[in-house]
Design a protein around this nucleic acid. Sequence first.
DNA 1: TATTTATTTGAATATTTCTTCAAGTATGCA
DNA 2: TGCATACTTGAAGAAATATTCAAATAAATA
Lengths: 119, 119
Amino acid sequence: MNDDRCALLCIDAPRAESIRGALPGSETVREAAERARALADPTRLMLAAALGEGGELCVCDLAWISGRTQNLVSHHLRLLRSNGLVTSRRDGKLVMYSLTGTGHALLEAVLGEKTEARS
Amino acid sequence: MNDDRCALLCIDAPRAESIRGALPGSETVREAAERARALADPTRLMLAAALGEGGELCVCDLAWISGRTQNLVSHHLRLLRSNGLVTSRRDGKLVMYSLTGTGHALLEAVLGEKTEARS
DNA sequence: TATTTATTTGAATATTTCTTCAAGTATGCA
DNA sequence: TGCATACTTGAAGAAATATTCAAATAAATA
């Protein structure tokens, strides 16, 4: 039999309750996961890295630098912006994008780790 | 007409080249994106947070705390481990999981940001 | 006003991912 | 040895995602 839910814990119940109580709420967790997801795609991560290097760039710049089409870049920038990693500002015909503080911090955290993955 | 690739840049070509040259290689970008992806799911983020609180926990503990089935927890832990965010160690019948340095750093970075998302 | 350029948006599709169910190891114990 | 427990793994379906193509704004300029 296998109900996939253990009745008894390997640690004691009060401690388990205390850990559970200390966890961030489900809304907070969802938002944090979305923030992580914003950098979870190579194309988006590359765009964020380009903004980290270049400071403020327009969509056309980013498309050229990343070697992707403009509308793909636009799609990805939208997700980065909706998660607060980048801001945009219109300048005439152009729309200039740049990293926010959050975006910079997250980018550094993700890029800064040397890979030590296992099987 | 729309070839979706601009011939001319909003910044000058040498600067664009220099930005492109400063970007991490595609392999590095891919690995970093995978690391971000490890925390890009609410269930996995919750498991990581539980390990951050509890120190070292077995799969059964984590299933109880997170309210998920054991095999789902196991699936997610595998991904966290393959990206170097957690380690495992067998102790008799139990398998104990804990955060790595990388895992702790990434978790803090993702949870530490207050949400400031836009449209 | 008509046209061109820069960007955004929508729809469609192929791929990936999350979750569940079912079966498989591995370890300890009767 | 046989059985129970803790965990892992594989397969399959539903949901989400990345990408492309095509069309729609928005702003400058002729």
